[in-house]
Each structure stands twice: as structure tokens, then as C-alpha cells.
Amino acid sequence: MLLRVSKAMAAAWLAACLGFLLVGGAAAAPAGVRGIAVLYPDIGEPYRSVFTRIIEGVEEQAKGRVLSIAVGAGTNPQEVAAELRQQDVRVVIALGRNGLKLAASLEREMGIVAGGVISVPDGEARSNVVFSLAPDPGLLFSRLQALVPATKRVFVVYDPHQNAWLLKLAREAAAVRGLELVAYEASDLKAALRIYQDVFAAMDPRKDALWLPQDSTTVDESAVLPLVLQEAWSRGFAVFSSSVVHVRRGALFSLYPDNLQIGRSLASAAQAQLSSNGAPRGILPLKTVLLAVNVRTAGHLGLNLSGRQQSFDMVFPEQ
């Protein structure tokens, strides 16, 4: 226990040092790339490394250090705004919830490219471009069809407040790929559980699969996930998820973000805004993804993955 704490503390200390370097370095010499800054949450692991990787992608794409500002609970928005003005920043790459909230308080002239979030309220999506961490349903369905070719119908239970935009894309993608998407809305956990009971009753394991989106209401990890995984194991139907964590616990596969590539995409979008090239608006699903597969679950489902494992970016159970 003590060792774990020590490791966590060491990681936090390292992260703090990295944050200092990022902030300090950017403030000291944002050489070459002027006009772009990154606002990212001042947060500990495991999230810090995600944002660090994204920022690396931004810098790779921008070909130089950019002004990176960690946003914590004590960060003063006025000071950040003054710093941005002083550095002549015109486009901000806002990462995570804290980054986006701070960016929303900036002047309207400031261009914002959002990233590092799963979804945003509709208003913000319309005024800015948002690179979501939610994998593109089309990619998910393609992987499903590749891994479980017999799948004809996909069930999903979602909270419309969180994933209405994604379901819209999912319906389109399912239709394109000849899949039937059976989607249920649930605004609380109790309702979701009741729906899941109905779904389980209605599912045909031979041709149906269950999709677990990144939805905090309908995909509760303590109540729903055990129930779903238990049912899937006993009934023998495929469960795929938008979260790589679920794969570790027993879901068949998941697509997860390539953070470095996300950074590059964010930088490209920012550069496009900077150059007034008419960057896109609205929320964009995650296109640059990696694949995680649970081979044990696949084996239980009778899927033959031999010869394809080298194309998986992450395999569970870990070897």
C-alpha cells in the first residue's frame, strides 16, 4: 500500500514537473509558432499523460513549442487572458473540461479548438470545432463486423443528454454498413437497468451485439457493467465498448484514442483557424483510433482471431 502511494506521489511529482516545464517553457520561448496556445487541465495521472501526449502531438504538428497553460482550481482566468494577449495568441486549443471552461470565458475574437472531451453541450459544439474522444461509431461497427461477421443487430442504451449527437452518427453508420441499430434512451440508472433487462430478453446471441457507449448514466460500471458482462458471458453475445477499460473487464473490443494523433489534428485545426481557412465547426467523433481486443472473451464467443492479433494495438488479458 505504501509502495503504491509512493509511486502515485512520484508520478504526481513528475507530472507537476512536466507541467512546470510545459508552462515555463512555453512562456519563456514559444519559438516559431506564435498565435496558438494550449489550455489543459492541471490534473494527476492517469489523465495527465493523456494530455501530455496530446500536447506532444500539437507541438509535432506545429513544429515547435507552443504556449501551454495548465488550468487548475486556482487558475485566474484574467491572468490567463492577459498572458495570451501578451503572447499574441489568437487560437486556443482547449483540452478537457477545465480547458474548455476557461476558453469559454475568453474574448470572442479568440479562436477555440476543443479536444480531450467526450462530448460538449450543443451550443458550444456549434460555435467551435470539438474533437471528441468518443470513437466514430462507423469505425466501431466496421471493427464489429470484422471481428463478429455474423452480427446483424446492435443494441445500445444511452442518455440522450450525453450521446444524442453520437447516436445520430451511429444510426447513419449502421445503416451504411447494413446493421440494425436498436437504441434505447434512459435518463437514469434504474431506467437503464430495466431497459437492459428487456434488451437481454430480446437479444439473439447469434446475430446481436451490445454497444456500451461512453455514457455515465446508462453504462454504470458498478451496477450495469457486471450485469451486462455476466449476461453476455452466460448468453454468449458480443459486447463492444467505446471505453478500453471495459475490454479489460470482459468486453470483446474497444477503440481508443491515439492521443499523439489527436494533438496533430488539433494543431492542424488551430493552424487552419489561424490562417482563416474556414476550419470546420461542430463536434467531430474520434477518427484516429487504436484497437483493444479481449482475446479470452473472443475465445469464449468462438471467434477465430488467429493471424490477426498483430493488428491489435492492445490485447487483453495482458500477456
Binding site: V117, Q162, S216
Partner: peptide, 9 residues
């Protein structure tokens, strides 16, 4: 739940 996530608004 898995705790507060910075990826969720």
C-alpha cells in the same frame, strides 16, 4: 462510477 473524468463536460 469510476470517478470524475476530465473528458466529460
Amino acid at each position: 462510477n469510476a470517478g470524475d473524468s476530465p473528458f466529460e463536460m
